[in-house]
């Protein structure tokens, strides 16, 4: 696996210049590699992890277990497509185990989320049931700890 991808997955803010130094490559080569990864859809996007609990933004996150009746030709894909079109849906996974689709959605209030599930999600064709779990607190996301600012407490010893 390419080191470039691993480094960028951890920190997308590194510049091509910095990456070139770290990997002992040409900047032009790095730019080219990134462009190719984007074109091939290996790199699909860049985002910032925000701890919204530290701001005055009102929001809730919910994880919804969705059971469906899969379709003969399309399996779960068609149903998933119907669901991921909603902008409220932040993540969507096809799962093994007791249910089929795991839908992660964000809304301003619990009421808003509940409304979305009842009115939109539950009424999607072939969805047979939903179970909504609200997130109470985010401890860790994408490998990053929330709520605990990192401090360098190492002593100067040697």
């Amino acid at each position: 696996m390419d080191n470039l991808l691993k480094i960028l997955e951890d920190d997308a803010t590194l510049t091509p210049e910095q990456l070139a130094r770290m990997l002992d490559k040409d900047i032009a080569q790095i730019r080219e590699d990134i462009k190719n990864y984007e074109k091939e859809g290996v790199i699909v996007g860049y985002k910032t992890l925000v701890d919204w609990d530290k701001t005055d933004r009102e929001y809730v996150t919910a994880m919804i277990e969705v059971k469906t009746t899969p379709q003969r030709d399309d399996g779960f894909d068609k149903i998933a497509e119907r669901i991921y079109q909603y902008p409220e849906v932040k993540s969507l996974y096809l799962m093994s185990g007791g249910y089929d689709l795991c839908v992660i959605i964000e809304g301003r209030t619990m009421k808003e989320v509940a409304y979305f599930v009842a009115q939109k999600l539950a009424t999607v064709e072939h969805v047979t049931s939903t179970a909504t779990h609200f997130v109470l607190r985010k401890y860790k996301d994408k490998g990053v700890l929330y709520g605990i600012p990192e401090m360098d407490e190492r002593g100067n010893c040697n």
Binding site: D152, R154, G155, N156, C157, N158
Partner: peptide, 9 residues
């Protein structure tokens, strides 16, 4: 901004 520490981060 120090680069002094002789131990892993």
């Amino acid at each position: 901004v120090g680069l002094t520490v002789g131990q892993p981060d």
